[in-house]
Amino acid sequence: MSRRPIDGTLLKQGAEAHVYKSTFLLPTVPSLMKVRPRKAYRHATLDLRLTKHRCVSEARLLNRCRTMGVPCPAVYFVDERNGEIIMEWIEGPSIRELLQRLIDGSPDRPSEAKEQSDGDVLSDPKVLQLMRQIGETIGKLHDIDIIHGDLTTSNLMLRKERRTTLEVDTSETENAEKNDEGIELLEGDYEVVLIDFGLGQVSVSDEDKAVDLYVLERAFISTHPKASGLFHTILEAYKQNSLGSGIVLRRLQEVRLRGRKKSMIG
């Protein structure tokens, strides 16, 4: 089976999927295309089965999130036999980029922000508010029994103001966001958007939710060691905003103690 050529710019080539920036239906509607390429090493039947399953599962999770009000990209189009999903383009930095910019400072950052030292930036109420928003979003996700499976600061994005899907006026938003790269982005309305549900699943288990948080905790601390003190703000907001959070957070304590899951035998 041959695949049609892909119309877009390759953004990222991961182990499982290639991600392109493209447009959907109209040249003014930017979109993101996630393609799971065929893996020649595995049996064709198995390959097709896995590709289809993962594609459909990811699209379903995105859809479920969207209908239940958890911010994530809208699904535009799915071709599971070819392993393709076309989804809404989320404009904005990842939380990882944003935190790194705030901590390390970036060369093209406005001078007033540059004067703030690390400590000041990290205790800024706007940054704390962002952490709370992250906790709230993950709380909502877990309340609808979705486990993300790969929570990292790269898979959380910041988007200014919500727009309805197909009426994107790129000229305006791009101009507005060009000048705002650091802490200015945290002024006014924004939302934290979850992306990449490739390892996600539906589960009601507290254990799975606790592990989901544990994955984020480890990723957060190893990616932003200087900002590790911020993590408890995320958990606090999670606690306040998620229904089953009490049990999940208790479970998280256990998961932490467990460390790596297994002591080896053999």
């Binding site: 182990a15 499982e16 090493y41 595995r42 049996h43 198995l46």
Partner: peptide
């Protein structure tokens, strides 16, 4: 073999990308 080894190759590839 086909199934179990595909799993092993997949996790190895993920680590390599990582």
């Amino acid at each position: 073999q086909e199934t179990a080894f595909a799993m092993l190759v997949e996790i190895t590839e993920r680590a390599m990308a990582h």
